[in-house]
């Protein structure tokens, strides 16, 4: 059962991360990967995203969620990579990879970590748009998404 959490400024290669993650997991029959990207849409175009974080707290919180997911869904391994600093449209922000014997626990494990991370890991997004930059408001749907895990 390995839990790995990396917070980094550097860009990462989403596919290379998954390949590296699965390399030493002969027992794994399933890996679920979620990758969050910097998005720019026609009604809300942005040029860049700046992510501020609380380094020590972010590390601890994500490690906690990853460990909880491992215990709850019997994962073989889980790895979370979350970036901070400035990133460009299309670049990855976060990646969660959960490995297990069968698919459902891999899906659930990655989903669990993302749901908690959205509301309880200390990161704050600032979007740089054509008319200046502004802090992103928290979404109510993120708050309700995590509630399914407490039922």
């Amino acid at each position: 059962m390995t839990v790995t959490v990396n917070l980094q400024q550097e860009m990462f290669d989403a596919g290379a991360l998954v390949n590296q993650f699965t390399r030493d997991l002969p027992e794994a029959g399933a890996v679920a990967t979620f990758t969050g990207l910097v998005r720019s849409t026609p009604d809300k175009p942005i040029r860049a995203l700046i992510l501020e974080h609380h380094p020590t707290m972010a590390q601890k919180q994500i490690e906690r969620f990853a460990q909880e997911a491992t215990d709850r869904f019997d994962l073989l391994a889980i790895e979370v990579v979350h970036r901070f600093g400035e990133m460009q449209v299309g670049e990855p922000i976060v990646q969660v990879m959960a490995a297990s014997h069968h698919r459902q626990s891999a899906f659930d494990g990655a989903n669990y970590v993302m749901d908690w991370l959205k509301t309880d890991a200390p990161f704050w997004k600032k979007e740089v748009g054509p008319d200046g930059s502004y802090w992103v408001d928290a979404r109510e749907t993120d708050e309700t998404a995590k509630e399914k895990w407490t039922k």
Partner: peptide, 29 residues
């Protein structure tokens, strides 16, 4: 709010905490 890297509520005692962090609702991921 967080005390020494742990999310807490407003009525949480400060105890021996060294750091109080104050921030908006989180928007990571």
């Amino acid at each position: 709010v967080a005390l020494d890297d742990e999310l807490v509520e407003l009525d949480t005692p400060l105890g021996n905490a060294k750091e109080l962090s104050i921030f908006p609702p989180m928007t990571g991921g």
